[in-house]
Computed example of a mutant assay.
Amino acid sequence: MTSTASRPLPRLIATDLDGTLLCPGGGVSPRTAAALTAAERAGVQVVFVTGRPPRWMEQVSAHIGGHGVAICSNGGAVVDVRRGELLRTYPLAAADALKVVGLLRAELPGSAFAFEFPGGFAREAEYQLRMWGSDEPHAVASAELLLADEQVQGLFKLLVKHPELDPDAFLGKAREVAGRYVEITRSSPFALLEISALGVTKASTLADWCHAQGIDRSEVVAFGDMPNDLEMLAWAGSAYAVANAHPEVLAAVAQHTVSNEHDGVAAVLERLLGLEPLSS
């Protein structure tokens, strides 16, 4: 593949992880790892921008850029992954969280709640765990009690599960009921909502990071696959949806790449950097 010398390199690559950069099994393929390394060597900063909480980032720490920083929880937290240190959070006020819990509990019976906060994770008993960390100690109580007792102080992400509803229908109804108070999105294949403070998205926190680095949005290339990526993909100067993306994302983003299973992010980086593709 020849170099695209006439096109200046982006200064920053912002990529989602699950369903975008990572293989279906959750790892980083050799081809993608090589492309990330080549981007860093070319002076292109790579920032992981994910819905994952900070406590799930150790699994990808080997591939974090030289700066060591990731934007987590849909923009709710900025973490130095290598040092295990929260650099900044964008908290959801307890009063707003309590209002949203009440609205969703009333309008969408069966909803169960959990919280990501600087001290860890807490949940209601009805909120069933499917992912990593289920064996880690955490508080279990009603959402109202957890908020009233300040057990989730500084929370930056409220999670809501429903056992029966279609994921997109769940998102649409929740936004209708409580969207004026908070940001509500989703990234999971099941009915799980991710809620942040009003105005806090992947895009808003990435914009803050870029501003601090003196990077203009026109110098950013972003990658994503799910509704929680939409604001970031719209904000970046150039954006790509992977082929396996949610239909809404595929419709909203003009540029597409192959699926995460086929190293879609790496394919674009190779083209931008003028690299020969490495077999997966």
Rank of each mutant, 00 (worst) to 15 (best):
R83W: 02
R83E: 15
E85H: 12
R88S: 12
R88L: 13
R88Y: 08
T89C: 08
T89L: 02
T89W: 02
T89Y: 05
Y90P: 00
Y90F: 14
P91N: 07
A93V: 03
A95P: 00
D96V: 02
D96Q: 04
A97D: 07
K99V: 11
K99H: 14
V100M: 01
V101K: 01
V101R: 01
G102T: 03
G102Y: 02
L103S: 07
L104K: 07
L104D: 12
R105Y: 00
A106I: 01
E107Y: 05
E107P: 01
L108G: 01
G110I: 01
G110S: 02
S111N: 09
A112F: 05
A112Y: 06
F113D: 07
A114E: 11
F115D: 11
P118G: 08
P118L: 04
G119L: 03
G120Q: 02
A122K: 06
E124G: 13
A125R: 14
E126V: 00
Y127P: 11
Q128K: 09
L129Y: 04
L129A: 10
R130F: 14
R130W: 12
M131A: 13
M131E: 15
W132R: 13
G133C: 02
G133A: 04
G133P: 03
D135I: 03
D135N: 11
H138F: 09
H138M: 11
H138R: 14
A139S: 14
V140Y: 10
V140I: 14
A141H: 11
A143Q: 11
E144L: 10
L145V: 14
L145S: 15
L146M: 11
D149Q: 15
D149H: 11
E150D: 15
Q151M: 13
Q151F: 00
V152T: 13
V152Y: 02
Q153C: 12
G154Y: 03
G154C: 05
L155R: 07
L155Q: 12
F156A: 08
F156E: 10
K157R: 14
V160Y: 08
V160C: 15
K161Q: 15
H162R: 06
H162V: 07
P163I: 06
P163F: 00
E164D: 12
L165D: 10
P167F: 05
A169V: 14
A169D: 15
K173T: 15
K173G: 02
K173C: 07
K173H: 14
A174K: 04
A174G: 01
A174M: 02
A174D: 06
A174T: 02
R175W: 06
R175P: 06
E176I: 00
G179Y: 04
G179P: 04
Y181K: 00
E183N: 08
R186K: 14
R186A: 12
S187I: 01
S187G: 06
S188T: 08
P189E: 00
F190I: 06
A191D: 07
A191K: 02
A191L: 04
A191E: 08
